[in-house]
């Protein structure tokens, strides 16, 4: 007999343990027939459809009969799953990406290619870690016995981490100062040390030397001013509107010329570009995109400082 009810019952019972299939099937048929009878609807086909629609998705009903969670990873394993996933993504992934980038750099001596292979392994290894871990936890949550589940989730307050002091912490400004200082040092160093060795033995800077009779200076001064302001923010006692304005000026001095040079494709030494890329030239869109990202980061930084300045003003 191939009625709609029969199809529905089959869909449910094939998803529950074999031992109870026959009994559940019989009961389900009787129940659906009872419900149908009570409807007292002349159009039997329409009534049957309505009753089955009310019973709902057979997969869901079967899960209820089998007392199985309707989730890939049940609520009892979810916290452990998130912890392990975060741990793996934060430790294994960077190591693998770094190793693959270094290996690529050593083998091909091509920074662009190494960055590409780094991004590639970031995506593939990240997806692999995610997929396998999810599969493992799915199997665990399906086949683990109930009281065992309770044991794996036993959590104690010892696992709590100390609260990070978000307010007035010195860590963020110090990190920011270090970053700006490193950029300033790199900017000068690449011009003085001429780190790139061309095929013909010439030593080249990375950035265009012509910048030093122009826009390199506001960038350098902006960076140094940012370092000073960061240090003041970290260790100074007073914070006032003047330091917010200082940030605005310094960030503008650093970001605007940099974004303009990248946009104008005037940032790199042409000889260096020729050595690295050969005859290939990066599409203009890459430069415009990078310039926009630089501008966006600069604006975000300024907005953060303005907000902090306002909060500090209100707090006093």
């Amino acid at each position: 007999m191939d009625t709609l009810t029969e199809r529905y019952v089959q869909e449910v019972v094939r998803r529950i343990p074999a031992a109870s299939r026959e009994d559940v099937g019989r009961e389900l048929r009787a129940t659906i027939a009872d419900t149908l009878e009570a409807r007292d609807e002349p159009d039997r086909a329409a009534a049957e459809r309505a009753v089955l629609t009310e019973m709902g998705d057979p997969i869901r009903l079967a899960a209820r009969y089998a007392d199985r969670p309707l989730a890939l990873i049940g609520p009892d394993l979810y916290p452990t799953y998130v912890r392990v996933l975060t741990m793996l993504l934060a430790t294994v992934l960077p190591v693998v990406v770094l190793v693959s980038m270094v290996a690529d750099l050593v083998e091909n001596n091509d920074l662009g290619g190494a960055i590409g292979s780094g991004i590639g392994s970031l995506i593939t290894v990240g997806a692999q870690v995610f997929a396998w871990l999810t599969l493992a936890f799915f199997l665990l949550s399906r086949y683990q016995h109930r009281d065992e589940r309770a044991r794996t989730t036993a959590w104690t307050p010892d696992a709590l981490r100390p609260v990070r002091r978000a307010d007035r912490s010195t860590a963020a400004p110090v990190a920011s100062a270090t970053w700006h200082a490193a950029l300033a040092v790199l900017l000068v160093w690449q011009q003085l040390a001429l780190p790139y060795r061309a095929a013909n033995g010439d030593r080249l800077p990375v950035l265009d030397p012509a910048l030093w009779s122009g826009l390199a200076w506001p960038i350098l001064l902006g960076l140094l001013a940012l370092v000073a302001l960061d240090l003041h923010r970290a260790f100074g006692r007073v914070r006032d509107a003047r330091s917010t304005v200082g940030y605005l000026v310094a960030e503008a001095a650093f970001t605007l010329p940099l974004a303009w040079l990248v946009w104008d494709r005037a940032i790199f030494d042409p000889r260096f570009l020729h050595e690295v890329n050969g005859t290939w030239t990066a599409p203009a869109a890459w430069y415009s995109g990078a310039a926009l990202i630089i501008l966006a980061i600069g604006m975000l930084e300024v907005m953060k400082r303005v907000r902090e300045g306002r909060q500090a003003g209100q707090g006093c």
């Binding site: 559940v24 009961e27 389900l28 129940t31 419900t35 009310e54 709902g56 009969y65 007392d67």
Partner: peptide, 11 residues
């Protein structure tokens, strides 16, 4: 709902 009650009875 029936789809809640019937599995509940078996449980």
């Amino acid at each position: 709902d029936g789809n809640t009650l019937y599995p509940l009875l078996r449980r």
